[in-house]
């Protein structure tokens, strides 16, 4: 077994997960997407982050 096998398996797993999510999650809607840059958008940052304190 060589490293390429691991990489191919990893990329296949990733593609499989994204395909599964595309079927299970809410459909994408680019018209409700935020502007390309958060800076200058006038919108509060809303993304999740591992450093965010948990909800009370």
């Amino acid at each position: 077994m060589i490293r390429a096998h691991v990489t191919v398996a990893m990329l296949a797993l990733l593609a499989g997960f994204i395909a599964f999510d595309a079927m299970a999650a809410d459909p994408l809607n680019p018209y409700t997407a935020p502007p390309m840059l958060a800076l200058g958008s006038g919108m509060a940052a809303a993304g999740a982050h591992c450093a965010a304190p948990p909800p009370k």
Binding site: I18, D21, A25, D26, G47, A48, H49, C50
Partner: peptide, 10 residues
């Protein structure tokens, strides 16, 4: 969790 994984920053 409900939204597409392609809209999650991390």
């Amino acid at each position: 969790v409900a939204a597409s994984v392609l809209t999650d920053v991390t």
